[in-house]
């Protein structure tokens, strides 16, 4: 066999060997990819299965919350009025008054009154005396000076001698009717002519 033929055979064998090596390696890598994708697809299936009822549940929760918001907003506006309602909301959540109430689009333009502040009697006294009262020092355009944590405790100082107790119960209304415990018998004079005082004789 000529030397050129041997070299050609060697070259062909080398090419075939390279093709086999790389193709087998590629096949192994593709099998790893397939296994990984199968794993991922299974997990994605679980995600779809677990998240399928979420939309309905969230819609139900939102519907109930919407109904609650409508109810409370409507009640607040009916009882306190739109302006005071915005003031109460802004007092509880500073800055929320600018957003307004959801069912009252024009409420966002109302300047919320500062009605959610808790002023103790001592604070008001100091304010009247012009001393360093917090409410006198703050700008009226600033946030509410309400103490969100101890606000109720501060309000309790309005009664230094203790909060007044309940009013003693008043006497109950009399029971009337056939079952009345106190019955007044009809007078014997009923139906008779009224008694007249004897006429004094003149002279």
């Amino acid at each position: 066999m000529p030397a050129a033929g041997v070299v050609m055979i060697i070259a062909v064998v080398a090419i075939v060997a390279a093709v086999v090596y790389y193709l087998v390696s590629t096949i192994l890598a593709l099998r790893q990819i397939t296994a990984g994708l199968d794993d991922a697809i299974g997990a994605v299936g679980e995600i779809i299965e677990k998240s399928s009822p979420v939309a309905g549940v969230v819609e139900t929760i939102n519907a109930n919350l919407d109904a609650g918001v409508d109810l409370l907003e409507g009640l607040l506006v009916a009882k306190a009025g739109l302006t005071d309602a915005v003031g109460l909301v802004d007092g509880l959540y500073p800055g929320a008054g600018a957003q307004g109430l959801r069912n009252f689009p024009d409420s966002g333009q109302i300047k919320p009154p500062r009605i959610a502040e808790v002023y103790t009697r001592g604070t008001l006294t100091l304010a009247r005396l012009g001393r360093e009262a917090p409410i006198a020092a703050a700008s009226p355009n600033g946030p509410a000076l309400r103490d969100a944590i101890y606000g109720s405790r501060a309000a309790g100082t309005l009664y230094p001698g203790g909060r007044p107790g309940r009013v003693p119960s008043l006497p109950r209304s009399p029971v009337i009717g056939a079952d009345s415990p106190v019955r007044y018998e009809p007078s014997d004079e009923v139906g008779r002519p009224r008694k007249r005082m004897p006429v004094e004789q003149e002279g």
Binding site: A29, I33, G36, L37, D39, A40, G42, E46, I47
Partner: peptide, 17 residues
């Protein structure tokens, strides 16, 4: 180079599940 990406996708899907 695709293999690590697929493995990360599978791990993320498992974590999401």
């Amino acid at each position: 180079s695709i293999v690590p990406s697929v493995e990360r996708i599978a791990r993320a899907a498992h974590a999401g599940s």
